[in-house]
Write a protein that binds this DNA or RNA. Structure first.
Lengths: 123, 123, 123, 123
DNA sequence: GTGGTCTAGACCACA
DNA sequence: GTGGTCTAGACCACA
C-alpha cells in the first residue's frame, strides 16, 4: 500500500478552472483573472499559477495573450471535449473505488440508482 | 478555493483496513498483523498505526486485545454496515464530483451506464 | 521593426538535445545526464533544465523516470518525425530570410546550388 | 554549449537597412530617415542608431553628410556586392543548421527542393 | 498592468 | 542519487 501523494497545486488549479469553464461560470471568450490576481486569490505563487495556465494554453482551452491577459477559448468543441474527458476520468475513478469495496460495475450502477432514489425521497 | 491537504495517513490506513475487511480479505474473527508489523509494512510510525486501530476499536470493527493483538469483529452486521457506509460515502463524493461538472444525479446515472457499456464493448 | 527577443534558454536546451538525438549522438533508450548534472554543465538553473525536459517528456521524446533519470524514447518513429519537423522548420526560416533579400524560393534554390558547388571547388 | 545572447541591436538595425536597400525599398542615392527619426521609430537610443550607420558609412553603403543626413550610395556595385554577401552568409548559416540535423549539403539541397515543391502544391 | 523567464533554495517522493 | 513541486523575488517584453 502506498500513501496518497498530494496532488500538485498547479493541477488542482487546472481542475478548478476546467470546472468553472465546463459549468459555464466562465464563458467562452471571457477573460480570466490575471496570473497575479489568481495568485493572490488562491494564496499561491505566481509561478504556480503560470504553470497551470501554460498547459491549458498548450491544450488550447485558454488563449494567453501577452500584455492582455488569459481568455477562455471560443472553440466550444474543445470545451465540450474537455468536459467529456473529465467526466470519463471521474467515472473511471469511481468504478475503481467501488471495485475496491467489492462491487462490480453492474452492482455499482444498481447501488447508485438506489442511492439517488433514497436521496430524492428524503427531500 | 482552498487546496486539498494530504489526507491524514491514519485515515488512509483505516480505509485500507476497512476495504480489506469489506472484501473479505481479512475474515471476521481473524487476527490482523501487529501494530509493529503494520508500522514496518506501511513504513509508518507505530503511533500512527495505533491511532488508526484505536478508532476502529471504538467503532467495534476491531477488538484490540492487550497482549494478544487486534482481531476483526465477528459481528457480521457491523462489517456489513461499515461496508454500506463506505459505499454511501463513495456515492456521495461521486455525485458531488459530477455535479461540479454540471451533471444532475440522473444524468450521472445515464453517463455511468454508457461508460460501463462502452467499457464492456471494448473488452 | 521589432528586435529579436532572446530565445528562452529552456527552448535552446530542447533544441540542443533534439539535435543530439537526431544526430544519434544520444541513442534511443539511452540515459541523458541528470537534471542536476545538465544544470551544472550548461551553467543554468535546475528548474530551467526541468522545464525543457518536461515538455520533451510530454512529446514522448524523453521518458522521465522518477528516481532513475531521463531516457531517450525507443520509439524510432517519434525521433524521425521530430527530426523531420526540425528540418522543415529550418527550411521555412531559411526561405523567409532569403525572401527578405529579394529571392524567390526558386532563386534561393539556384543560389544554394551555386554556393555548394563553389564550396566544393574550394576544397 | 553556450547560450545565444541577444544579437546587438545596432547589428539588427544594420541588417534591417541592408535588406531595405537590397530589396530596393530604399533606392540608390535616396535619403534615409534622420538618426533621431530612426531612433524614435525603432524606440532605440540615438547612439545605437549612430553606431549602426557609422559602420555602414565605413563600408561605403551609406554616405553620411553632416548637416544633411544619410544617403544610400549610388554605387550599384557596392549594393549588389553587399546583397551577395548577405545571401552567402544566409546560405552558410543554413547549411550549418542542417548539418547539425545530420544533412550533408547535397541532402539539404534535395530536402529544400522537396520542401518548395510541396509548398507550391499546397497553394 | 499583464504575461514570460530565470534563479536560488527548500522540501518531498521514489529507488 | 534522481526527478517533482513550490516559493520569493528579480528582470524583461508587450500594450
Amino acid at each position: 500500500m502506498e500513501f496518497q501523494d498530494n496532488i500538485p497545486i498547479y493541477q488542482q488549479i487546472q481542475k478548478y478552472l476546467y470546472k468553472q469553464i465546463a459549468l459555464g461560470l466562465i464563458k467562452p471568450g471571457e477573460k480570466i483573472p490575471s496570473v497575479r490576481q489568481l495568485a493572490v486569490d488562491l494564496t499561491v505563487n505566481v509561478n504556480t499559477v503560470q504553470r497551470a495556465l501554460n498547459e491549458m494554453n498548450n491544450e488550447g482551452i485558454l488563449e494567453v495573450k501577452r500584455g492582455l491577459g488569459s481568455f477562455v477559448t471560443t472553440d466550444i468543441n474543445l470545451i465540450t471535449n474537455k468536459r467529456q474527458e473529465l467526466i470519463k476520468e471521474t467515472m473511471s475513478e469511481f468504478l475503481e473505488s467501488t471495485r475496491q469495496l467489492g462491487l462490480t460495475p453492474e452492482e455499482t450502477l444498481k447501488e447508485l440508482k438506489n442511492y439517488i432514489e433514497e436521496e430524492n425521497k428524503s427531500k
